[in-house]
Amino acid sequence: TFTSIVTTNPDFGGFEFYVEAGQQFDDSAYEEAYGVSVPSAVVEEMNAKAAQLKDGEWLNVSHE
């Protein structure tokens, strides 16, 4: 299960995956970082959410 939350205070020191406002979700980078295949429906969902981000916001993507 993939989830996401919007934050204005990303923790770059941890093992977190963020999408910056104005960027798209990079499923290849996510797969490389976590060894998890990302279904195309999830990629579309995360890109739709990322498109709604305002300046200074980040989308924190995770999975269980």
Rank of each mutant, 00 (worst) to 15 (best):
T1H: 13
T1L: 11
T1W: 12
T1R: 13
F2C: 04
F2M: 02
F2V: 03
F2L: 04
S4D: 03
S4Y: 12
I5W: 14
I5Y: 15
I5P: 02
I5K: 12
I5M: 13
I5C: 14
V6E: 03
V6Q: 02
V6I: 12
T7A: 04
T7Y: 03
T8E: 07
T8W: 07
N9R: 10
N9K: 12
N9Y: 08
N9P: 00
P10C: 09
P10S: 02
D11K: 11
D11Q: 12
D11H: 12
F12T: 06
G13A: 11
G13F: 09
F15N: 15
E16T: 11
E16P: 06
E16N: 15
E16C: 15
F17C: 07
F17T: 04
F17Q: 03
F17W: 09
Y18K: 03
Y18R: 04
Y18N: 03
Y18P: 02
Y18L: 08
Y18A: 01
V19G: 01
E20G: 15
E20R: 10
E20F: 08
A21L: 05
A21M: 09
A21W: 10
A21F: 13
G22E: 04
G22C: 07
G22I: 01
Q24Y: 12
Q24G: 09
Q24W: 12
F25E: 03
F25T: 00
F25I: 03
D26F: 04
D26L: 05
D26I: 08
D27L: 13
D27T: 15
D27P: 15
S28R: 15
S28G: 10
S28C: 14
S28T: 13
S28P: 04
S28M: 13
S28K: 15
A29M: 09
A29Y: 07
Y30C: 04
Y30K: 01
Y30N: 01
E31C: 10
E31I: 07
E31H: 11
E31V: 08
A33Y: 12
A33H: 12
A33D: 04
A33T: 12
Y34P: 01
Y34M: 08
Y34C: 08
G35S: 07
G35F: 05
G35N: 08
G35M: 06
G35I: 02
V36A: 04
S37Q: 12
S37P: 11
S37V: 11
V38P: 06
V38Y: 00
V38T: 03
P39N: 03
S40E: 10
S40G: 10
S40W: 14
S40N: 10
S40Y: 11
A41L: 10
A41K: 11
A41Y: 14
V42D: 04
V42T: 08
V42W: 06
V42Y: 04
V42P: 00
V42H: 00
V42I: 11
V43H: 04
V43T: 09
V43K: 09
V43I: 12
V43Q: 06
E44Q: 11
E44I: 11
E44S: 09
M46H: 02
M46L: 15
N47M: 06
N47I: 05
A48V: 10
A48P: 00
A48F: 13
A48C: 12
K49E: 09
K49S: 09
K49W: 09
K49A: 14
A50Q: 03
A50W: 02
A51L: 09
Q52T: 10
Q52N: 12
L53M: 06
K54S: 09
D55T: 14
D55F: 12
D55Y: 12
D55R: 12
G56Y: 04
G56D: 05
E57Q: 10
E57D: 04
E57H: 06
W58P: 02
L59D: 02
N60Y: 14
N60T: 12
V61A: 01
V61W: 00
S62M: 12
S62H: 12
H63C: 06
H63F: 11
H63I: 06
H63A: 03
E64Y: 13
